[in-house]
């Protein structure tokens, strides 16, 4: 369970990215976060694993308080939260498997990670994660040799290798073409259903949000402006989140709108 209580995030340059947000996300939920760029979507996700400075309020994940957690507590918490990025954030020069092994870093003893001598069961977990996203045949290839969609799947495998209870996906399909976008979204949906992993996804495209989301959270200027079932949302409420009418740019299949 993830609980935000009046949580605010202020960056060192004084920008208030999240303003007194309170919300509760139950285990196994599939939540889509929408809003304009700069509305605080990424910040909301990064508040969950403590990558941004939370100046007031509280954020609890599985009962562990993020605000004021020690470095060791934060590492332990992050090791249970997988994260997926818009730009994939893979080490391009490294092989696929060594990218996925990054998800195991927190679980192996220091000397093993320094020498690169991974325990057999950790390697097995990495391979299983790659099998789940269907690119196990690329295991020993360089990450830079993969297509965008494949790279994002490596990103998902890296998150899965952590054996996470929560997955945070920050605009996972923004750098992908429509077909690949649907494939990645389906992967995420399947992982959520089959493994019961709580999933928080930032999306820019409204039609994708409608198609795959269950619960929708709308942010505007760092404030929570909508929280509810995605099927109950109408165009007026979208307009309130975005502060303007919906344009074809807000839809993945822009031509259909």
């Amino acid at each position: 369970m993830i609980e935000f209580t009046e949580a605010s995030v202020v960056y060192p340059n004084g920008f208030r990215a999240l303003d007194k947000v309170s919300l509760t996300i139950e285990d196994g939920e599939f939540v889509v976060v929408v809003g304009l760029s700069g509305a605080g979507k990424s910040t909301l996700l990064r508040a969950v694993n403590g990558l941004v400075p939370i100046v007031e309020g509280s954020v609890k994940v599985h009962g562990q308080e993020v605000v004021g957690a020690t470095a060791a507590e934060l590492r332990e918490l992050r090791s249970r939260i997988g994260m997926i990025f818009q730009t994939f954030n893979l080490v391009n020069r490294a092989t696929v498997v060594s990218n996925v092994m990054m998800g195991r870093l927190s679980k192996v003893p220091r000397w093993r990670s320094i020498l690169g001598m991974w325990p057999a069961q950790d390697k097995e977990l990495a391979l299983q994660a790659l099998e789940r996203v269907g690119i196990v045949e690329k295991t020993y290839e360089r990450a830079s040799n993969l297509s965008g969609g494949q790279q994002q799947r490596v990103g998902i495998a890296r998150a899965l290798a952590q054996e996470p209870t929560v997955i945070l996906a920050d605009e996972p399909v923004a750098s992908l073409d429509p077909v690949t976008s649907h494939m990645v979204m389906r992967d995420l949906q399947r992982i959520n259903r089959e493994l019961n992993i709580t999933t928080l996804i930032n999306l820019h495209f409204l039609d994708l949000a409608r198609q795959y989301g269950k619960r929708l959270i709308g942010l505007r200027d760092g404030k929570l402006v909508y929280d509810g079932d995605i099927n109950d949302v109408d165009d007026d409420q979208f307009r309130e989140i975005y502060g303007r009418a919906i344009t074809p740019d807000d839809l993945l299949e822009g031509a259909e709108a």
């Binding site: 990558l51 332990e76 992050r78 090791s79 893979l90 945070l168």
Partner: peptide
């Protein structure tokens, strides 16, 4: 710096 954030968010030291 993307991969750095990825490693950090996976709980790496």
């Amino acid at each position: 710096v993307g991969p750095l954030e990825a490693a950090k968010s996976a709980g790496a030291r």
